[in-house]
Nucleic acid binder design. Structure first.
Lengths: 257, 257
DNA sequence: GAAATAGTGTCTATTAGACATTATTAC
DNA sequence: GTAATAATGTCTAATAGACACTATTTC
């Protein structure tokens, strides 16, 4: 059987996204300006690379992949990670002239800024690059193509992790990976705006759409305290904002009904 | 580097969906009743299995996977196939007691009924099972769980190919894989209804939604003939129906804007 | 004329989107 | 009072959904 053929380590690659929060220039309580960053490791020859690892098959896949990332980054918290695609990337055979391919599992992950602080000091090999930097700086070409597209000539199919994550941000509940379990609607709105900077969501209409429309029914719910009152937060404003959480449901988005 | 470790064959698995068309019981021109079927191979011990194969890395992934399926099924037409997920499935080590895991690339594919006729005769090992049959009959348990869920205890994560395909049918343009390049809106509607039998799409409103709403703008377009007139078909009715095709775009479906 | 599908008309309820307004509260 | 966010009000346009109706054409 085919299973018996398999006895190699399976390489995987992590696109780790994080959000940097910048305070606005004001004295009062304020919302944060958020920017999307991608975690890179700077190698000896000064090239930035995504995080990589190998799987030996001794553990369940999702578990192994998360554990490996926790270990690499010395993070103990649970990490939000999802598989995006398995691709074949070319490699040169040492002893032959024809190209062949090796598999690579591509994951994306979300890690909150506060879980990364211990990694982002001056003489650390890790850096969080902005999207612009990740496109312009000296990033390993393969990794740059996996992030932003252009693999097709190499691999015969396309991947564009950043675009995929942008889309999933709006059409799934993965935002939970970058929010606290309980969050305000302006936190959610700012997160979405950070991932698609061209978009401007009207905050009044945003609240109404999320809380009232049939389409989003069941996606999020209000957080209740022990007295069955809606929990609120004054973190960003003196006017308390309701706290919400994502449910485990994702209502179907459909073109056709 | 990790790439050098990899020298095994990588197994993959195909969930091949097809649509069976049944004429309604009438003398006149009529729409078809469609049912979803899954292609299975019946093994010696009478168990149904999904199609499998191995990749040796000599060809690009998507290309290799399609070629292998074409070869297995003796089909020359292009086959619509997409990767869904890579999972780890358990295997028993011959020489040890602890479990370990082997990777499996899960694909789904769409093949039109007419491309399968040569395979579905009496003494062929291939059968097209209805969704009900695939859930009730003696299908290899692993494959049944991959199709309909229940893998979690084995693999630590869930897959449910049928459910995923149902959802993608409504939220992407994969329907093109089971339609002719040019199709009528009732063909599309019947295809959707076949995949989610509980749904009843109002045919009048369906036409309007697809052709007028902003949400679906750009998803499909009318087919024009050489005189720049909209092409039509009388295949299902004496009243000609317009022909449409999917574009290469998929407008963003979003909870949030 | 009947059968069958294709498509338009019409009405109501819901939603989207723009934008003004009010509420809250620490300073 | 002011700054800042949270949320509601209001209005218009667009869409969804139910269902009646017309159109087409072969038999």
């Amino acid at each position: 059987m085919s299973e018996l053929h398999f006895n190699s380590k399976l390489p995987f690659l992590y696109c780790v996204f994080t959000i940097r929060n910048h305070r606005k220039n004001t004295v009062r309580k304020t919302l944060m300006n958020k920017t999307v960053n991608i975690l890179m490791k700077q190698t000896a020859n000064d090239t930035y690379q995504l995080l990589q690892g190998d799987l030996d098959g001794t553990d369940m896949l999702q578990h192994a992949v998360q554990k490996e990332l926790q270990h690499t980054l010395s993070i103990e918290d649970d990490i939000f990670a999802e598989q995006l695609k398995t691709i074949y990337i070319p490699r040169k055979k040492e002893h032959a002239t024809d190209k062949d391919y090796t598999p690579l599992l591509v994951y994306y992950a979300f890690i909150k800024e506060e879980s990364l602080t211990h990694l982002l000091h001056e003489d650390s090999p890790y850096t969080a690059l902005s999207i612009d930097e990740a496109q312009e700086k000296d990033v390993l070409p393969l990794h740059q193509k996996i992030l932003f597209g252009g693999l097709s000539p190499l691999c015969g199919e396309e991947v564009n992790v950043y675009e995929q994550v942008q889309k999933k941000m709006f059409s799934s509940s993965i935002a939970k990976g970058l929010l606290n379990e309980e969050f305000t609607l302006s936190e959610l709105r700012e997160l979405l705006e950070a991932f698609v900077p061209s978009i401007r969501l009207n905050s009044s209409n945003f609240i109404r759409k999320i809380t009232l429309s049939k389409m989003t029914k069941g996606l999020i719910e209000e957080c209740m305290d022990e007295n069955n009152c809606v929990k609120t937060s004054k973190q960003y404003s003196n006017n308390a904002a309701k706290l919400y959480r994502f449910t485990t449901e994702e209502p179907l988005l459909s073109y056709f009904n």
